[in-house]
């Protein structure tokens, strides 16, 4: 799994800002802070978007690997019962990750 650059609080805020910076405004007002586990999820998505895959990957992981990571994170999202703005931001983040890594045709 990827490293967690924004481990702790504020990961949703960072992800929301990253989306906005790329021209995609998600209308959720000011993103709230999640529980540590929820924040961790957003941090991992953000790392995948930015191509930070941690020490487990010496080289760029394959698209299949990245897709598998995102599938795991989706499952985790269901387990944590994410809803409201947190879910909206996370879903947008996953979409961005899918696009950045061209997972459409995998």
């Amino acid at each position: 799994m990827p490293t967690q650059a924004y481990n702790g609080t504020g990961a949703y805020q960072k992800l929301w800002e990253l989306l906005d910076k790329k021209g995609f405004y998600i209308n959720v007002g000011q993103p709230p802070t999640g529980t540590p586990a929820q924040e961790n999820l957003a941090a991992q998505i953000m790392d995948i978007v930015q191509g930070k895959f941690g020490e487990a990957y010496m080289t760029q992981p394959s698209r299949e690997d990245i897709k598998a990571m995102l599938t795991k994170l989706r499952t985790k999202k269901e387990e944590l019962k994410l809803s409201g703005p947190l879910e909206t931001i996370l879903d947008a983040g996953i979409r961005l990750a899918e696009k950045e890594h061209r997972l459409n045709s995998v």
């Binding site: 021209g23 979409r95 899918e98």
Partner: peptide, 16 residues
Amino acid sequence: NIEQQNAMTNLLISVI
């Protein structure tokens, strides 16, 4: 509405 706006933004996010 906000939900629809976000759905539309999500579409745009997907477009390469």
